[in-house]
């Protein structure tokens, strides 16, 4: 990551946005709990970025351990806005229970995903496997 990073903190969820990388993607590194308390502010921040003209966004959920329906709703809003404005939206590192919740909500199939980052030396429980 390079350039002018902006650090934001809402509750137990954090996200870090970077300037565009070599492929033109602004990377959003998210961590913590994307839940009913934090997700609305996250959605607003991403929707504002898209409205401001972002053309390529990549959201990295590797460090997100908890995602509830408000978090799923945030992702839906971001997907809707990106589709409406033509912003290319990609996801990375969606695993564990957040992945399961997105699958059960039928949203996972709509998300364009990049290869996940391997968690070296860590056994992945059966229920967590993609």
């Amino acid at each position: 990551m390079r350039g002018n990073a902006v650090f934001l903190y809402i509750g137990l969820m954090e996200w870090l946005m970077s300037d565009p990388d070599d492929h033109g993607f602004e990377n959003v590194i998210i961590s913590g709990d994307c839940d009913l308390y934090a997700a609305p502010a996250f959605a607003k921040a991403m929707q504002s970025r898209i409205a401001a003209g972002a053309r390529k966004l990549r959201m990295d959920f590797t460090e997100v351990n908890y995602l509830d329906s408000t978090g799923v709703g945030a992702i839906i809003r971001i997907l809707q806005d990106s589709r409406r404005t033509g912003c290319e939206l990609r996801f990375r590192g969606v695993g564990g229970s957040p992945r399961k919740v997105l699958r059960m909500s039928n949203i996972l199939a709509l998300m364009e995903e990049d290869a996940p980052l391997q968690r070296a030396g860590e056994a992945i429980p059966q229920w967590e496997r993609p």
């Binding site: 997700a39 609305p40 509830d68 329906s69 709703g73 839906i76 809003r77 997907l79 809707q80």
Partner: peptide, 22 residues
Amino acid sequence: LSLASYRGPRSDETDGGNSLIA
């Protein structure tokens, strides 16, 4: 995608609108 979240008469902007689906 337009139907992804339920919006009822009392839904507000913080409602995910999908908890019952999962």
